Amino acid sequence: MIASLLWLALPALADVQEHLQEQYYDLQVASGESLSRAIDQASPIRQNGQIYHAYTRWQVQWNFWWREQRDGRCQIDLTRTQLHATITLPRLGGSDTQQRQRFEQYLGALREHELGHYRIGQAAAAEIDAALRQLAEYPSCAELQRQANQRANAILQRHAEHERRYDRETGHGRSQGAWLTE
């Protein structure tokens, strides 16, 4: 009996799982050719008429399990939040030593900018998981489910706006050194 009372007093358990993958597109540049132009031509990342050299796509998925009381009241017992992310970057081939050095410096700054996007996804996943675990008991499981999903989606929207602001503030990485001047 004491063990079951202790179990009822425990907060909801959480498990945030993260999966980050890098993928590449190939880029060939001839000696003396503009590195920026070669990346523009090779990049498969095109949105709203713009060409981007790198891109981070992240997705947060959440699940929760609840306990229903005899009177219908409902509370979350367990959450599982997953972050899946893919960073797409260029991979250089066929270059001279100077181009390779410039590319490696550029790639480091580009990767750091994209990791900033990933960190926003991490923050979203952590915040969603915490919000689900902190949800109060609701009069019904249907209301609990509605409130939980509504809160999680609102958090996603806030972090999507954070990403847009991050790109505006950094000039899509330009202020972080992810810029080629040629």
Rank of each mutant, 00 (worst) to 15 (best):
N48V: 01
E114L: 00
Q176K: 02
N63E: 07
R80G: 04
Q23E: 11
Y52R: 02
I51W: 02
L110F: 13
A124K: 03
D26N: 05
T170H: 14
R100S: 02
Y25W: 12
R100A: 02
D96R: 08
S36D: 14
S95Y: 09
W179F: 14
L13F: 12
A85R: 02
R73L: 09
H84S: 14
E182H: 15
R146P: 10
R174E: 09
H19A: 11
Q21G: 02
G116T: 08
D96F: 04
R70S: 04
L156F: 13
H162W: 07
I87G: 02
D26G: 05
Q147I: 06
S95D: 11
S4M: 13
Y55K: 12
I76V: 02
S43H: 14
A9S: 15
L115W: 12
I2Y: 07
R46G: 00
L20I: 10
R100G: 04
A109Y: 09
Q21P: 02
Q157H: 04
G177V: 07
A130P: 05
C74A: 11
R151Q: 12
V29F: 06
E127D: 13
E137I: 05
L110M: 15
C141G: 00
R119L: 10
A38Y: 10
G72T: 07
I155D: 02
Q134L: 08
S36W: 05
Q122R: 15
R133K: 14
Q75R: 14
F64M: 10
E163S: 15
G108H: 15
A130L: 14
Q61K: 07
I128V: 13
R100I: 01
G116K: 05
N153C: 03
Q98C: 04
W62Y: 09
Q99C: 06
P139K: 11
